[in-house]
Design a binder for these strands. Sequence first.
RNA 1: GGCCCGUUGGUCAAGCGGUCAAGACGCUAGCCUCUCACGCUGGAAACAUGGGUUCGAUUCCCGUACGGGUCACCA
Length: 561
Amino acid sequence: MDYNKLSELLFPHITQTPAEIEAQFPPRQLPEGAKVTRFAPSPTGFVHFGGLFPTTVAERLAHQSGGVLYLRIEDTDAKREVAGAAEALIRTLSVYGVNFDEGAILGEDGKICDKGAYGPYKQSLRGPIYQAFAKQLVREGKAYPCFTTEEELEELHQINKKEEIKNTDWEAEAAKRKAEMLARRSFTMEEVEAHLAAGDPFVLRILADGDPEKKTKFTDLVKGNMEIPENDEDFVLLKSDGIPTYHFAHAVDDHLMGTTHVIRGEEWLPSLAKHLQLFRYLGFKTPKYMHIAQIMRLDESGNKKKLSKRDMGANMDDYTGMGYCPEAVCEYVMTLLNSNYEEWRMQNPDKSYRDFPFHIKKMSVSGCLFDFNKLNDVSKNVISRMDAKTVTERVTEWAKEFDPAFGAALAKDPAFAEQIFAIGRGGKKPRKDLATWADAKPYMGFFYDEFFTVTEDFGEQYDRGDIKTVLSEFLASYDPADDMNAWFEKVKAIGAALGYTPDMKAYKADPSAYRGNVADVSMFLRLAVTGKKNAPDLYTVMQILGKEKVAQRIERMIEQI
RNA sequence: GGCCCGUUGGUCAAGCGGUCAAGACGCUAGCCUCUCACGCUGGAAACAUGGGUUCGAUUCCCGUACGGGUCACCA
């Protein structure tokens, strides 16, 4: 077979040689040890948690080493492409601290545009580049055309679809496929010419030289040493529309764009043999690989499953709606990514996660379960470190979009809101009431008349008369000018007169000796003023509310009781 | 089913041949305290399993089980 002739037949329009293309993609001039990584999404949907994970690694590794993080859009499957997805992806990533130095980035007009010398960064625009390398492979007898159509193939393999995969006789199937492959490999120049003359579409397949009985030793930066069987499958390089498959595009692009570390989910591990083979065929140096364990979730029957699109907590945009702040999500991602991150955080509570020395060695080999409990805890800590002004602004901003009535109330008087969020904030042991912005309303909504409702009951054990007396006496003596101590002394005195002792120790020693204690008295007041049995420090709450509102609420309670 | 990867408390995890097997979340007892939150002191809770190697295995090797991934002109 005259492979040179074959390559001209197949790609008559390609005149540029791989060497000429290589010249357009010179090696990067970067300091020693600088890593070049990338995020290479297919624009088919939103960013999900499982995707943010490896991307954060890529971002940290690149920027921590003084390298480059670039974005390449893998839009090689026109059928699945979703309009606007790429732009949305970039925006979401940016929210979570992933910003690109190069690649397909968002321009001023909100549209995607290229930045950098290694473009175009949209694979659909790189057809001739791939085809030049494809042509070379054909010339070298390492790839060949296949005129079997997609429909014919589908008919041949009725078991392609997932459900049928389990119940297949795989031995017979393998033999069948092997035979098919051998048949595909034998063709004559005349047949090719006839097909082309007839305008038949074809795919370009690799001529696999691997022996699956033989293993290649390989070291993954995360997974460590492993042995993988050589590839003997003539997989598709170019689809019938001339666009490459992932495998081929990966090899060509990551080589030309100078990627040093390919960071991706471990679902790619099984196709690694193909990629290694391709790099060898093309004469490219292989990049380093990091296959990251998947995030899992629990399914109905209690088994772990890869966290996928529809799952709770998958779509990053959902976190916004739930009221999680991006810093908290990043913080959680970091705790999952590096096992010593939490320890570092305890020692460096005020630093940015970007100051953390990220180590590949500290990454987990196995997949972990997504845990909202942990996220909430991390988030509470993150928010507890913010100042009142920041919290006020961010709650307001969130509420304006997701709880407009609440948002409007907050926005009406930011200084008032800030006083509320300042309660218990700023000290060594700050309150941790908020895991999400959505927690704000149940926590402090009672400060606003429109959200104030009495949601709890005094309980049957208390004498209504006592409660009434406490409320009216307090009202009569309440002076906002009192300091906390004076205020509390008054409360104690009111209770004591009714047999509610201010001495908690004495009460605990012998509860039957008293009608109650000062905690009960406080509870009467708290319920009247906040509508709840649990609230931040009552004295402070009253100070912020002001005498008028305090009086109004207590009076109302006296009437209702 | 083939191939690949994995398996330390409910979850996330330290651990690299000799430890009473860290820590965090969650749960829980108590302390602090006007409630809550915070904080503090405790508690329950784990090396999947069978064989080796070794004076000694959670740590090394092999098998088994279980879990995950993958087997497209999708990425």
